[in-house]
């Protein structure tokens, strides 16, 4: 029973990692851009929500809803006016620019909010739980996992049911031919990063409610996100959710065996999947 409980907790933790990873997966899937500042953007989102909660006394959920349009606009502008300039056949310039952005964000957050750990207020939610079949499940982890599934479903709906989704896929396949259809690739890329930052805000909400955060934890979130994306197969959204679950389960099982093994077990699971499936579990056919 303890092992079942451990695995279920791991699955729920995987939802958080999937939220970290979904925006990264979206951006990579459409424009082959690896955003090294992704983790720092999540931390920045958490600080933005904290700021709104502190200033207005609103619940973190409402504060996140207020932050979402701002983060979308930030992502759109970031892509349109900075990252689009470095996109091209050479993958190095975007890596360098987003690495630089990561450094700038960490230092700006350090300057603005100090190195002290912060946490979003959750009230009774942090200890609330429901019993299912003799296992107690935290309401917050359940909400996190449910949100991750909703995000993946919503992204899939956008991708496969809307004109914008068709434009995303067409631009990802061949930006030049897409422009012959009247698509402006630069705007499509900006829209994708804007949507990615909406997901980043949702990830930031749960990150801030579940654990302490400070300006320096972004790179570690980026690594978890990376691993989830790569395990799932670059550009596959459901694969990203599965990748997050695999890392989450590996971490909780590792921690159950020995608390020092928690982080290491996640990385080992990542390496094992890479050894067996070097392109991830659900690689795109067209890469």
């Amino acid at each position: 029973m303890i092992w079942i409980d451990t695995i279920i907790q791991g699955v729920l933790l995987g939802g958080l990692y999937a939220l970290f990873a979904a925006g990264l997966s979206l951006v990579f899937g459409i424009m082959r851009l690896v955003n090294l500042a992704h983790g720092d953007l999540i931390v920045m989102g958490a600080y933005l929500i904290l700021l709104l909660v502190t200033m207005t006394g609103l619940s973190p959920f409402i504060a996140a809803a207020i932050a979402i349009p701002f983060m979308f606009a930030l992502g759109f502008g970031l892509q349109k006016f900075m990252l689009n300039r470095v996109l091209g056949d050479d993958i190095l310039p975007p890596l360098l620019v987003t690495f630089g952005l990561s450094v700038v964000l960490q230092n700006a957050l350090l300057e603005g909010f100090s190195a002290d750990s912060q946490r979003l207020p959750t009230g009774a939610l942090s200890t609330a739980s429901v019993e299912v079949g003799g296992i107690n499940l935290g309401v917050l982890p359940l909400l996190t996992f449910g949100s991750a599934v909703l995000v993946i479903v919503a992204l899939n709906q956008i991708f496969y049911r809307t004109e914008l989704g068709r434009a995303f896929r067409a631009t990802s396949d061949d930006a030049t031919t897409a422009s012959l259809m009247g698509i402006k690739p630069a705007n499509i890329f900006a829209m994708a990063t804007g949507i990615a930052l909406i997901i980043v805000t949702i990830a930031a909400l749960y990150l801030g409610m579940r654990a302490n955060f400070d300006p320096n934890i972004g790179p570690a979130r980026l690594i978890y996100a990376f691993e989830a994306v790569i395990i799932g197969g670059l550009g596959s959204l459901w694969g990203t959710l599965l990748g997050g679950i695999i890392i989450g389960v590996a971490q909780t099982v590792g921690a159950a065996i020995n608390p020092e093994w928690q982080i290491l077990a996640g990385h080992i699971a990542f390496l094992v999947v890479l050894l067996i499936h070097p392109r991830g579990l659900f690689p795109r056919a067209v890469d």
Binding site: E163, R166, A167, R169, A170, S172, D173, D174, T177, A178, M181, G182, I183, A285, V286
Partner: peptide, 18 residues
């Protein structure tokens, strides 16, 4: 230069995007 990620109908529909 068809889009590999799109079905035949989606390839047609994308033609009127702009």
């Amino acid at each position: 230069k068809l889009f590999p990620s799109l079905s035949v109908e989606e390839n047609l529909l994308i033609g009127s995007y702009g």
